[in-house]
Design a protein around this nucleic acid. Sequence first.
DNA 1: TTATAATATTGCAATATTACGATTAATAGA
DNA 2: TCTATTAATCGTAATATTGCAATATTATAA
Lengths: 111, 111
Amino acid sequence: MGITKTDLFSMEQNAIAHMAKVLGHPARIAILQYLVRSTTCINGDLVQELGLAQATISQHLRELKEIGFIQGTIEGVSVCYCINPEKWAELSHLFGAFFDDYNKIQKSNCC
Amino acid sequence: MGITKTDLFSMEQNAIAHMAKVLGHPARIAILQYLVRSTTCINGDLVQELGLAQATISQHLRELKEIGFIQGTIEGVSVCYCINPEKWAELSHLFGAFFDDYNKIQKSNCC
DNA sequence: TTATAATATTGCAATATTACGATTAATAGA
DNA sequence: TCTATTAATCGTAATATTGCAATATTATAA
């Protein structure tokens, strides 16, 4: 199939999975880390930095933008990308809560 | 292509992406949440809980086990799965650090 | 207006993922 | 041993992802 049965799961489960999926490619992790370090960047920067084709990077940027992790503003002939602070906070909280649930509820009654 | 160029990225970037990718499916999020709440489970529990076929759940369990998020011990005719505490801590730290980098370095000099 | 520069989009090939029926393997109990 | 139970694996179909060349789009500069 290749198609996820999202209707079987809660909104929160689908949201976490969707965000994780977007984070699930090293190029997109690298782009986000580059943005965190450099504050902003353009597609061209990343072609130099990552060594992927321009078209490929544009595609990864679009995925990051669609889910809201980054935002871009047109600056002349190029587009300036940066982290979206609100979404980054949301992401951080959602994953933080997901991981913390385990620490709260139990410690080591494992099988 | 469909094949990720892992050689272009750092070990850490590939590790984060790999972990995120495994988290990038709502069934696997649901399995982990179920385990967090219930401490342990078997494949059959999840067939009831999730409504996916046994073979499909077995496949998701294998992915979670391969990366180490969960561990299983044989109990008679069934296999008892639970969260792997060490890996969960690693996961939590890795993602925590990734998210925190942004908060440490900058606040809002966005484009 | 024409040329240039930077990105986005399109189309495609190769590979990966998701899902499940059918089968197999392994254990417990009669 | 025979049978039922449970889960893993195999095989396969449908769909998704990755990556890039080619092309289109958009904005600046001459």
